[in-house]
Amino acid sequence: MNPGTLRDALRKLGVPVEEGRTSAIRQLVLQAPAPVIAQALGYHDKSATRIATEAGAPWKHCAPGDHTR
C-alpha cells in the first residue's frame, strides 16, 4: 500500500481526505511548534506557521531557526 492507493480507497469510501489532513495538521500545531511539525512532515515552515495562526496555536513565542548547537 502506498499513499496514492490509500487516498483512492478513502475517496471511494466517501472520506474527505483533504479535510482530514488539514484537521490533523491543525491538531498537531496545537501540540507542538509549527516549525517542528513542518520539518517532521515536509511542509514549508511558513505554511505550517499560517496553519498554526489560524488554529490559534499557543506557540507564538517560540524562537524560529536552527537550535541544534
Rank of each mutant, 00 (worst) to 15 (best):
Met1His: 09
Met1Gln: 08
Asn2Thr: 12
Pro3His: 12
Pro3Val: 13
Pro3Asp: 14
Pro3Cys: 11
Gly4Thr: 14
Thr5Ile: 12
Thr5Pro: 01
Thr5Leu: 12
Thr5Gln: 08
Leu6Met: 09
Arg7Ile: 04
Arg7Ser: 01
Arg7Met: 03
Asp8Gly: 07
Leu10Pro: 02
Lys12Met: 12
Lys12Leu: 12
Lys12Thr: 12
Lys12Ala: 15
Leu13Phe: 03
Gly14Gln: 03
Gly14Leu: 00
Gly14Ile: 01
Gly14Met: 02
Val15Tyr: 06
Val15Lys: 11
Val17Glu: 02
Glu18Pro: 02
Glu18Met: 07
Glu18Gly: 04
Glu19Cys: 07
Glu19Gly: 06
Gly20His: 07
Gly20Ser: 11
Gly20Leu: 12
Gly20Asp: 11
Arg21Cys: 06
Arg21Glu: 06
Thr22Gly: 08
Thr22Ser: 09
Ser23Trp: 11
Ser23Leu: 14
Ser23Gly: 15
Ile25Thr: 04
Ile25Asn: 03
Arg26Val: 04
Gln27Val: 13
Leu28Met: 13
Leu28Arg: 12
Leu28Gln: 08
Val29His: 04
Val29Arg: 05
Leu30His: 10
Leu30Glu: 13
Leu30Tyr: 08
Gln31Ser: 14
Ala32Phe: 13
Ala32Ile: 03
Pro33Glu: 01
Pro33Trp: 01
Pro33Leu: 05
Pro33Asp: 01
Ala34Gly: 03
Pro35His: 05
Pro35Gly: 06
Pro35Arg: 00
Val36Phe: 04
Val36Glu: 07
Val36Pro: 04
Ile37Tyr: 00
Ile37Lys: 00
Ala38Glu: 03
Ala38Asp: 02
Gln39Gly: 03
Gln39Cys: 03
Gln39Arg: 10
Ala40His: 09
Ala40Met: 07
Ala40Pro: 06
Ala40Leu: 06
Ala40Glu: 02
Leu41Cys: 03
Leu41Thr: 01
Leu41Tyr: 01
Gly42Gln: 07
Gly42Lys: 07
Gly42Ile: 04
Gly42Cys: 06
Gly42Pro: 06
Tyr43Ser: 05
Tyr43His: 06
His44Ser: 07
Asp45Val: 15
Asp45Met: 10
Asp45Ile: 13
Lys46Ile: 09
Lys46Val: 10
Lys46Ser: 15
Ser47Val: 13
Thr49Cys: 03
Thr49Gln: 02
Thr49Met: 01
Arg50Leu: 00
Arg50Val: 00
Ile51Met: 05
Thr53Gln: 15
Glu54Pro: 09
Ala55Glu: 04
Ala55Gln: 09
Ala55Val: 11
Ala55Tyr: 09
Gly56Phe: 05
Gly56Pro: 06
Ala57Pro: 13
Ala57Val: 07
Ala57Gln: 13
Lys60Phe: 05
Lys60Gly: 14
Lys60Met: 12
His61Met: 11
His61Cys: 07
His61Gly: 12
His61Asn: 14
Ala63Glu: 15
Ala63Gly: 12
Ala63Cys: 13
Pro64Tyr: 08
Gly65Asn: 10
Gly65Thr: 10
Gly65Tyr: 06
Asp66Asn: 15
Asp66Val: 15
His67Tyr: 09
Thr68Gly: 12
Thr68Ile: 14
